[in-house]
Design a protein around this nucleic acid. Structure first.
Length: 412
DNA sequence: CGTCCACAGGAATGACGGGCGG
DNA sequence: CCGCCCGTCATTCCTGTGGACG
């Protein structure tokens, strides 16, 4: 019966004490601000490259590299949205389509999104890829359009599907009569060209841009700028600002991380009813984000992935950090036996390990031990306590935390 | 200086659930 | 309802390989 009152309390408290955030949205990393500090040069360059579409000619394909949180996406969206309004002003037939390849996931869905942005309706599934491509091409050519395709996080697509789509897209202009297509490829991975067919690569990177990471000072400016819009005056302490930029700078100058840190720190402070954001809140936010990362990652991974992670955790006790694939496979087999689950092959395990590596939960490195073979050294990338926290609440796997695999006790 | 370990990781293939168009 | 195609997970078979050992 008291429940509504509890909530009432919570809400009232929130309304009365929420004196920190002026505009929460501004502090999200996907918010597109009116100013992008320290990226003026890139904005100008990209602007020059795409400008020809205003005069009815196709612009060069362009390839943009840079690590996460260096402003690639923000700059591109910024430039393109300005281009769009200019194009309207001059009546140039410019359209664009932004696709995040990691979200979109497959060749089929990329073409489906492209078609949808032209106003074609494409079923989720059921058609062959070729059919969707044909429809897209026909749809595009039915009116005269300069179509700019932005493929963000393109490395995700290429690494597990190959460069077939890019091949199609780079050649599409040859079969278009009225319309023209230009590509903007954005990659987090600087070594992407190694995965590409050289023909595709050279056509895709008629122009190239590299985004350098921000340094601590630049991050600080960015955060300052955003916090002016996002927080009320005097909320953010100097110390908190410094620590945010320092932490993010240590992590390859990732502005996305810096902004997340700042926003979550604000939320932590708010929940504690504090009037200012302190260094302590930022530290708290760091833990919070890390914890969420793990929970999120595990929420959509399979039982077997979790078992792999647990195996590494257990092995960590015995061999001070790094374990080999073979050891993990043994422990994993034992855990499967404990649960009465059938186990996967070692080949499969290898790719699961790679996936966990990509998610940042594990760290794996191929090493050669000479006469004693060639394997991967794998260690946990996250705090052991975090694993304990997360698995303790897992009904099915909780008890495996206490269990000590034979291999581990033998090693001890 | 060749051997050979203990895997890495690519390719081909299959099983399965889901959705479409007819 | 069927036949077709999709994406995902998993297996099988395979070739490749860095470097300590002998």
């Amino acid at each position: 019966m008291g429940n509504p009152n509890i909530l009432d309390d919570v809400f009232e408290k929130f309304i009365n004490e929420a004196k920190l955030f002026k505009d929460r949205e501004v502090l999200r990393h996907d918010y597109l601000p009116e100013k992008l500090p320290h990226r003026e040069e890139q904005i100008r360059l990209l602007g020059q490259v795409v400008a020809p579409v205003l005069k009815d000619s196709r612009c060069s394909n362009i390839f943009i590299y840079g690590k996460t949180g260096t402003g690639k996406t923000a700059v591109t969206k910024f430039v393109v949205s300005h281009l769009e309004s200019k194009a309207k002003e001059y009546g140039a037939p410019v359209k664009f389509c932004y696709i995040n390849c990691r979200m979109t996931g497959s060749e089929y869905r990329v073409f489906a999104s492209l078609s949808q942005s032209l106003g074609l309706s494409i079923p989720f599934t059921g058609l062959s890829v070729g059919e969707v491509f044909d429809r897209f091409q026909a749809g595009l050519d039915s009116t005269r359009t300069l179509f700019i395709i932005i493929l963000d996080e393109i490395d995700a697509l290429i690494k597990d599907r190959g460069d077939g789509i890019l091949y199609e897209l780079t050649r599409i202009n040859e079969s278009l009569h009225k319309s023209k297509v230009a590509l903007i490829g954005i990659s987090n991975d600087l070594r992407l060209k190694e995965f590409l067919d050289p023909r595709v690569f050279s056509s895709l990177s008629e122009e190239e841009m590299v985004f350098r990471p921000y340094d601590a000072g630049e991050l600080r400016n960015i955060l300052q700028e955003r916090s002016r819009l996002g927080f009320f005056e005097g909320v953010l302490s100097e110390a908190a600002l410094s620590i945010c930029s320092a932490l993010a700078a240590a992590e390859h100058g990732d502005a996305r991380r810096a902004l997340d840190l700042l926003r979550v720190a604000g939320e932590v402070a708010e929940r504690q009813g504090s009037a200012t954001i302190t260094e302590e809140h930022v530290r708290e936010a760091e833990k919070h984000i890390e914890h969420n990362k793990v929970v999120e990652a595990l929420k959509n991974s399979t039982l077997h992935s979790k078992l792999v992670l647990l195996s590494v955790y257990h092995l960590g006790k015995a061999c001070s950090g790094s374990a080999t694939t073979g050891e993990i496979y043994d422990v994993y087999n034992e855990l499967c036996g404990e649960l009465g689950v059938s186990m996967l092959t070692q080949r499969r395990l290898g790719t699961l390990i790679n996936e966990l590596d990509a998610m940042g939960l594990l760290n794996s490195k191929v090493v050669s031990m000479g006469r004693y073979g060639r394997t991967k050294k794998i260690r946990l990338e996250i705090a052991r306590s975090l694993i304990q926290d997360v698995f303790a609440t897992d009904g099915r796997l909780g008890h495996l935390m206490e269990y000590t695999p034979k291999l581990v006790s033998k090693k001890q």
